[in-house]
Nucleic acid binder design. Structure first.
Length: 495
RNA sequence: GCUCCGGUAGUGUAGUCCGGCCAGCAUGGGGGACUCUCGAUCCCCCGACCCGGGUUCAAAUCCCGGCCGGAGCACCA
């Protein structure tokens, strides 16, 4: 068992099952995003804890106009799970199981537990569901229902022309529980099975059958699915199946990010986002690209526990965890955003490079050399305009790990060499800032979290680092190299 | 409107079933030490039991009544 995070409560009735079997049921409309990670991590946690089995079930029923199956998701979701360290034992596609759902549909019709309703959906809602009055379809004979069922399958009924309703009771006090539709007609083409089927199950029905068929013992999911759970229980009761344990957690929102798969899908398709790994999608792919350690995500998700309250957390918590995990391994670098070029004069002629530690906490990792091209006692270096602007004329400041200079703002920005000793600048409480030499620095493009690009220059030693390297730009923030070269491309991680 | 769920510092969470150690932890904010970063590390501080009754020697915890918040009520998932 991984020693991650706090101890979550025990699962109930574990001993009543041969083993703990749980499932991940993402709808394949896009990659997993950070909100989906909670579902994946919680299920994975418990399966590992009880040495059980985890099944990845693509919930790829036909969906709707707003929720469409995205073919790429069949690959991107497993990729995201791998990143998260989620281990699953087998993969199942709902779209391969239509015959099972049909078999039970016929059986339910024969038992009188369901009926085929050809009422208009809107009319039924207003005249029957809200008022709690059954419609005339509900008193049909079994034979009539079966023949209507055939008409659904063979195309006699058009889309929305008829649907199968589960007889949960029109007198149920909960309006959500009144004779819900469990199968309906859709002629939308499915990316995996094409137009082979025109009758598709709804989530609650397919799971009512499949949770049993797949031997699921425990289900953990969002509380937006409690109604679906009740409908499942109704089905389990009809067949007298052992009831899986149901566990719900509340909605998770992020204060500093809006998560919407459908919006992301639109922006990715029309090119507003750079792809499914654009930081604005908050996909697992995008977080990996930024150098977020998946253990940080796991820790955050597990710390939330199984509370049913809706919560709103800040990404700062995630970043804090990531820093804890990765700071020690992140080499330090200088990066100057929109530089002001300073002409430094009086630089000792023998100066050829500056040395800065790779990591201040680990001197044994050595130093990075920053070459200095001194000509006629002068050299050109860049400092952040942001720094330059707030500095006053005559200020003694230090170029970190190099030397101290006195600032002379004039027609052109100039720095006059003062000394090498850090203590000189400490004595005057002067600022110590990062810098880059004009010669040899690498043009850098940083993709920020909002998708915008920040440009600047990174010190020459970055060219030795490989893509995928997680680093810290001193006084600036953490990031990950996406592409080396010029310009070098970097994904911003966090402060 | 109906059904269900829930309210602990700014945020998140532990404790609630089986009342009792100054309500713990993390994050955040503030301050200090250290470091040649605004990072890390170390120390200190700030800050909460929704409200009102009741039971009790003792209530975040049990009971009653309010108030507030959320989810569901699709031929979506």
């Amino acid at each position: 068992m991984e020693s991650e995070s706090k101890e979550l409560p025990e699962l109930t009735n574990v001993d009543k099952w041969p083993k703990v079997v749980m499932r991940l049921a993402p709808f394949p409309s896009g990659p997993l995003h950070i909100g989906n990670a909670r579902m994946a991590v919680l299920n994975d946690y418990y399966v590992k804890r009880y040495d059980g089995e985890l099944i990845l079930v693509f919930d790829d029923t036909i969906g709707s106009a707003e929720k469409q199956v995205e073919t790429e998701a069949f690959d991107m979701i497993p990729e995201g799970l791998d990143y998260l360290g989620v281990k699953w034992h087998r993969t199942v596609y709902k779209s391969d199981r239509l015959n099972i759902f049909y078999k039970y549909a016929v059986d339910l019709l024969k038992k009188g537990e369901a009926y085929v309703c050809d009422c208009d959906a809107g009319l039924w809602r207003n005249e029957h569901k809200i008022k709690g009055k059954p419609c005339s379809c509900s008193i049909l004979s079994v034979d009539e229902n079966l023949s209507r069922w055939e008409m659904m399958l063979d195309g006699t009924y058009p889309e929305r022309g008829a649907a199968v309703r589960l007889r949960t009771g029109m007198d149920n006090p909960d309006p959500a529980m009144r004779d819900h539709v469990i199968l309906r007609i859709s002629e939308t083409e499915h990316p995996r099975v094409g137009t082979r089927y025109r009758v598709w199950p709804l989530l609650e029905y397919s799971w009512g059958i499949d949770d049993h068929e797949l031997g699921i013992s425990h289900i953990i999911r969002g509380k937006d699915l409690v109604k679906e759970g009740k409908i499942e229980q109704h089905i389990w009761c009809i067949y007298d199946w052992q009831q899986p344990e149901l566990l719900y957690y509340g909605r998770l929102k992020f204060q500093d990010a809006t998560l919407s798969k459908s919006k992301s899908r639109k922006e990715v398709l029309d090119g507003t986002y750079s792809g499914w790994d654009d930081p604005r999608t908050w996909s697992m792919q995008s977080l990996a690209k930024r150098g977020i350690d998946s253990q940080a995500i796991r820790k955050i998700m597990l710390d939330l526990g199984l509370s049913t309250v809706d919560i709103s957390i800040s990404m700062k918590a995630l970043y804090s965890e990531n820093r804890k995990l990765r700071d020690a391994d992140a080499p330090r670098l200088f990066f100057v955003e929109s530089p002001t070029w300073l002409k430094l004069s009086g630089v000792p002629a023998e100066t050829t490079y500056a040395e800065a530690p790779v990591h201040p906490d680990f001197p044994d990792r050595g130093v990075r050399k920053i070459p200095l091209d001194v000509r006629d006692d002068t050299i050109l270096v860049g400092i952040q305009t942001k720094d330059y602007d707030r500095f006053e004329e005559g200020l003694l400041f230090r170029l970190k790990d190099f030397a101290n200079f006195k600032l002379l703002k004039g027609k052109s920005p100039v720095g006059q060499f003062h000394s090498h000793d850090v203590d000189d600048v400490r004595a005057t409480k002067g600022p110590i800032i990062q810098w880059v030499p004009k010669k040899g620095s690498v043009g850098t493009e940083i993709t920020m979290i909002d998708g915008s690009i920040t440009t600047g220059f990174a010190e020459p030693s970055v060219s030795k680092l490989k893509p995928g390297t997680f680093f810290q730009f001193e006084r600036w923030g953490f990031g990950c190299i996406v592409e080396s070269g010029s310009p070098m491309k970097v994904a911003f991680a966090h402060k």
